[in-house]
Design a protein around this nucleic acid. Structure first.
Lengths: 185, 185
DNA sequence: TATCATACATACATGCATGTACGTAGTTCG
DNA sequence: CGAACTACGTACATGCATGTATGTATGATA
């Protein structure tokens, strides 16, 4: 059910999401859905939580085993590209676009999740600048925002066109960071 | 009226767009809106057309006066970043996300507009590779897709944080293209 | 075996946004 | 000066999606 909801959220966004379609795709009716989730909002929040957890375990783990901040950021880009080959990944982007700057529980949750990612990137950028692996430039937070945005945008545009998605995501990230060339994978 | 519609489309997308709100923001009622436009779909298509025209005259003009393909692509990135400081710019992104892969007139129109942009970039990439200003890499179309996606994503994430948006957009574009460093602005 | 909870399906009520029909004031033109 | 058209506002009808209330079968438990 979560998977079906994620697929539909990716495709149609929250407003256009039709619960009966979600339930049918999962082999149930709307009754079952309302038995498992409080309401539409609860469903969306659960999906967000689920996707975030999956991201953490798949991409986060990959990032942590890198040698330095610059490598971690590039690995994050590559990992995110691979992660987004499944269609569920656009959930965050879709919901952010739909609720950005609005006072809605879902908007806040999306904001919170992407904010932790941006903060993480900003920390890595600062660390990389200290150890010399990333050149100076605009404020770390602005660079982090651009990095995450560029990453999501390019990955969605490529829509899982393996294997170029991974390389191009890494290249874009390196460019935003101001790295002259890609560190070896 | 077009401007109000563009603002609301940017913020809420098509599905969540409420025509009465659009009309009120423009100082009219829904009656006036239905007098000027056939229906909701027609309004969205007109907005798309209007935004596209504005983009062409502002960014397109800037691009054409560049010396070579690589400079043109970087100018496109910078120009797009500046263009997107107004909130109307997210219209294309919002509608694309909402209608991508669907058989809907609006989806087709959005697809058509962004396809011409991608094709334009792909041509510039090929030209740049021929004259040596852009290194070889993945297929030009894939690179173009990534470029446009990264551009839109980063610009939206930065949300008009002048002046960093322009530099970071250019950097990201250069990275995707595989340029070691930015050509002089 | 009687009771009760769980996991669903079904049916109904409500709200909201669209689209359309109609009414009205101002303007143009013969 | 009147007819007709333009540019709106108003009021109603329709559809659709949500949420809720109710029904039903299956398994556990005492």
């Amino acid at each position: 059910m979560l998977e079906a909801a994620a697929r539909n959220l990716s495709r149609y966004g929250y407003g256009n999401l039709v619960l009966e379609q979600v339930a049918r795709e999962a082999g149930y009716t709307r009754g079952a859905l309302y038995h498992q989730f409080e309401d539409k909002e609860d469903l969306a929040l659960r999906v967000l939580e689920w996707v975030d957890e999956t991201w953490r375990s798949e991409v986060g783990a990959l990032v942590e085993q890198q040698p330095g901040p610059a490598a971690e950021l590039i690995a994050l880009a590559r990992g995110h590209a691979v992660f987004c080959r499944r269609d569920i990944s656009r959930v965050a982007m879709a919901l952010r676009l739909e609720f950005s700057g609005q006072d809605h529980p879902i908007g806040r949750e999306v904001e919170r999740i992407s904010e932790t990612l941006v903060k993480r990137c900003a920390r890595l950028i600062n660390a990389g600048r200290r150890d010399g692996s990333i050149p100076p430039g605009p404020p770390a937070r602005a660079v982090a925002l651009a990095l995450v945005g560029a990453l999501e945008g390019s990955v969605i545009a490529l829509a899982g066109q393996a294997p170029h998605d991974e390389l191009l995501a890494a290249r874009g990230a390196a460019g935003v960071l101001g790295l002259g060339s890609l560190p070896a994978p």
